[in-house]
Design a protein around this nucleic acid. Sequence first.
DNA 1: GTGGTCTAGACCACA
DNA 2: GTGGTCTAGACCACG
Lengths: 131, 131, 131, 131
Amino acid sequence: MRWRVDPSHAGPIFQQIVQLVVRGVATGRLAVGEKLPSVRDLARELVINPNTIAKAYRELEADGVVESRRGSGTFVAPRRVVFKSDERRRRFRAALEVALLEAVSLGLTPREVDEAYKSLRKRLRLVEVKK
Amino acid sequence: MRWRVDPSHAGPIFQQIVQLVVRGVATGRLAVGEKLPSVRDLARELVINPNTIAKAYRELEADGVVESRRGSGTFVAPRRVVFKSDERRRRFRAALEVALLEAVSLGLTPREVDEAYKSLRKRLRLVEVKK
Amino acid sequence: MRWRVDPSHAGPIFQQIVQLVVRGVATGRLAVGEKLPSVRDLARELVINPNTIAKAYRELEADGVVESRRGSGTFVAPRRVVFKSDERRRRFRAALEVALLEAVSLGLTPREVDEAYKSLRKRLRLVEVKK
Amino acid sequence: MRWRVDPSHAGPIFQQIVQLVVRGVATGRLAVGEKLPSVRDLARELVINPNTIAKAYRELEADGVVESRRGSGTFVAPRRVVFKSDERRRRFRAALEVALLEAVSLGLTPREVDEAYKSLRKRLRLVEVKK
DNA sequence: GTGGTCTAGACCACA
DNA sequence: GTGGTCTAGACCACG
């Protein structure tokens, strides 16, 4: 797994880390049960403050993506549904609309949009999860 | 056109206004050349700070979505060919990835994702633009 | 509303603040929509670090008890059900069991337990909320 | 008796063990005088650090729930009259308030709260002790 | 050694 | 002025 953040212009650092982990889970680079780097280790590697890593891990835990065990580490959590179905769809549609409105505002063609969708959809092998 | 913002937890208010306009344009509720409410009027209607409206309009103008004509108001700009640099495609892909990672993190099935995509894509009738 | 924390032996300070607010809401001392003291003001008053207050407010927001509006303040949120019913009952039963096991372990009589329950139940006028 | 702990997010493991024992005593699954598993055995069974078990047993002994007899093991102590100081009542009321505030924060109805109380109170057959 | 809490103090985005 | 983010560095509880 390759850890890397852009401290300058790509949104809060802690969110970038959140996305690194979610992307890792989505693409299979991070397996369920796998141990993430410790807060301190990752902070040292990325040359950022440990609190920032801790915040990212906290957020991930709140979303049910990882589990923190005091004294032993942070681990990729088994996939389970945290929110009920309607709420989940609503949240996703909101995020997706933001992206598509961006496309409109940038003047992209439907074709370009579809291509980007297909390509990303493939890379992030979305998986069936249990209720 | 229905103007409405959520002051609590749906992102910065000025961005919500930007999205309202972009969504209006994308769905056809706002026609090219149509006049937007004045900064003051809209501020009074939404009970928010005029600076916030002004910031939103400024952002929209920078993106080429609206045109501001001194002395007469702000108008929906003609959809025109913008320079489609790789930068623009990159921006869109980034936004789209955020949405799809959200889907992963929420544990949505590929089918749910596809359905949402198709439905939104249709509603926001993306338009072909000329080179 | 009286703000006061015990920095020595009564659990994390941020949790004490969380409880102060929840207790305020429960007893009616804090009304829905009411503005809480700003992070800085409360920090000054309680002579603790602003970050600690911010953490408490963040937690309260995650639980749906308050809403933070950047630039304007933190407010008591309208009561609404965040978790689905089973999950809510489960969480409450867990908390209640902890309390009752404490009673067992302390050797309290059923009568003492019932008295404490009745008295607290009365003070924290639990209210009906909408689904 | 079924020994089981949740390493993820249900509080410190040693406290979970303390609660397992107290719950066992409260529900009658553990009889007075019964021998608890040895520290080593239990550690092996639960796949956790023996120090963690030892800490739990130490805590239980301090609370008078178990007795440790050198060379022969740890046993459930006879329920005896402990000095019921105001301090003990205060401790219980604090724990109970935490539970009831949780109910408020979750938006439970008074009825749901009462039902949970009655059901748990029955299951944990609190016992009358002599003065 | 691991994560959790707290402090002190800086800078930014927003209204 | 308000909350949000980040840094630096200390101490504690847990395993």
